[in-house]
């Protein structure tokens, strides 16, 4: 598969428990399935417990150097501290996906593309509490088309643990919610 050439350097950031590492894993699996170069790097340490959590995902057709994303061209921000921390690092023209039900402020920069999605509220209203992360993945898919729907669906199936198989459909619903948001 070589139809998707754009290199994505993605930072997903928010509170621990919002499923950012999981969302990053879904993105990474799309790369694995499409035989692209992939890296996934979590922040780790005491800050994981209830504090901020972030994860870096690179999807590329070239070998990936540092898995640490210092110049993201995609930022998924699920709380205000994360937006404030990572907004300045984004390259001009980057896509910022902001969960506007969690982040009360607006992006200050004018040289980036901003998309506000009330992902947490949308998910809760649709009976998909806890899947705002996947709503945002759906939105990213809709905007960047970094893989096919089949690949994305397969990635979800890879990431949902076998013991929670009933969660597959909910994740797919959340993706669709994001696509149409």
């Amino acid at each position: 598969m070589s139809e998707f050439h754009e290199e994505l350097r993605i930072v997903l950031a928010g509170f621990g428990g919002q499923g950012l590492l999981f969302a990053g894993k879904v993105l990474a699996y799309t790369g694995l399935i499409d035989d692209r170069e992939v890296s996934w790097l979590p922040s780790y340490g005491p800050e994981m417990r209830g504090g901020t959590a972030n994860c870096n995902v690179s999807l590329s057709d070239e070998a990936i150097g540092s898995p640490l994303v210092l110049d993201p061209n995609v930022l998924i921000a699920m709380n205000q501290p994360s937006l404030e921390k990572f907004e300045p690092m984004c390259v001009p023209g980057a896509l910022l996906l902001v969960d506007s039900s969690m982040v009360p402020v607006k992006v200050g920069r004018t040289d980036v593309e901003v998309c506000y999605v009330p992902a947490t509220k949308l998910a809760e209203d649709a009976g998909l509490k806890g899947l705002a992360n996947i709503v945002l993945v759906g939105k990213l898919f809709a905007m960047k088309g970094f893989c096919s729907w089949d690949t994305l669906e397969a990635a979800i199936k890879k990431c949902v643990p076998a013991k929670k198989v009933e969660m597959v459909q909910k994740n797919l619903d959340a993706l669709m919610l994001g696509v149409s948001a």
Partner: peptide, 10 residues
């Protein structure tokens, strides 16, 4: 190191 240990790659 911690980066290689924690990161995922194919």
């Amino acid at each position: 190191d911690g980066m290689l240990g924690q990161m995922m790659e194919p």
